[in-house]
């Protein structure tokens, strides 16, 4: 039985029956790449799995136990990176990371610096987010993700606004997470350069995946 399994997932967005009876499994140390046309429901799937969106019906099993996607214990082991990086524009990168990760676990300023170094964002760590470019902000968000040390990552287009080096950073962060036994669900068309054993893909069609 794999770490994360989903059965009978039905989601409506307004009138549209977006996800119809979706089911899949993600073993430990594996990255499930969610692909599909725009508006097919990739973001919806990730938000439902993160407990941010209520599904019509969903049977979610996490580490062998049936859980509700809104359960705080499940959330404690999950990180969600959405379209906009969760950063306060009046704070500096360091302050933002200290807060976002601090909500989850004790964080020392040394940890924050090492996270910023991991995403090579040291040089703009003390400037308010307001003054950073979209790509730089995305790097700061990735630093917080890396530092959070959660087991399950839900990434929605993680490489948006990133240059080639940035995309390579995303791939290496994911590889690092997988080698540590973690799981990743990423909605991205980017080739993450993962070996077949660590990669699975889920096609979300306009009519959703038929069971």
């Amino acid at each position: 039985m794999s770490e994360l399994s989903v059965k009978n997932l039905h989601v409506f967005r307004g009138e549209r029956h977006l996800l119809r009876g979706l089911g899949f499994e993600v073993p430990a140390g594996c990255c499930l790449q969610v692909v599909g046309a725009n508006g097919a429901g990739k973001t919806t799937l990730l938000r439902v799995m993160s407990g941010l969106l209520e599904a019509e019906s969903l049977e979610l099993t996490w580490r062998g136990e049936r859980v509700e996607p809104r359960d705080p214990e499940y959330h404690a082991e999950l990180s969600y990176l959405g379209h906009d990086p969760a950063l306060k524009s009046d704070f500096t990168a360091a302050e933002n990371i200290a807060f976002n990760v601090g909500l989850r676990r004790r964080v020392a300023s040394q940890d924050v610096r090492s996270a910023l170094a991991r995403v090579s964002a040291e040089k703009f760590s003390d400037r308010p987010i307001r003054s950073l470019s979209a790509g730089q902000r995305r790097r700061v968000a990735l630093a917080a993700l890396w530092l959070s040390g959660t087991r399950l990552w839900m990434l929605d287009e993680p490489a948006t606004n990133l240059d080639a080096a940035g995309q390579a950073l995303v791939a290496s962060l994911i590889q690092e997470q997988l080698s540590g036994g973690g799981l990743v669900m990423a909605a991205t068309h980017q080739d993450l350069g993962l070996p077949a054993a660590q990669r699975a893909s889920l096609e979300i069609g306009v009519h959703g995946v038929r069971t």
Binding site: L52, A76, L103
Partner: peptide
Amino acid sequence: ASDGTLEQFVVCGQP
């Protein structure tokens, strides 16, 4: 809500 931080409140595992 607009800058995405409120979502992190819901997902961070704290009540």
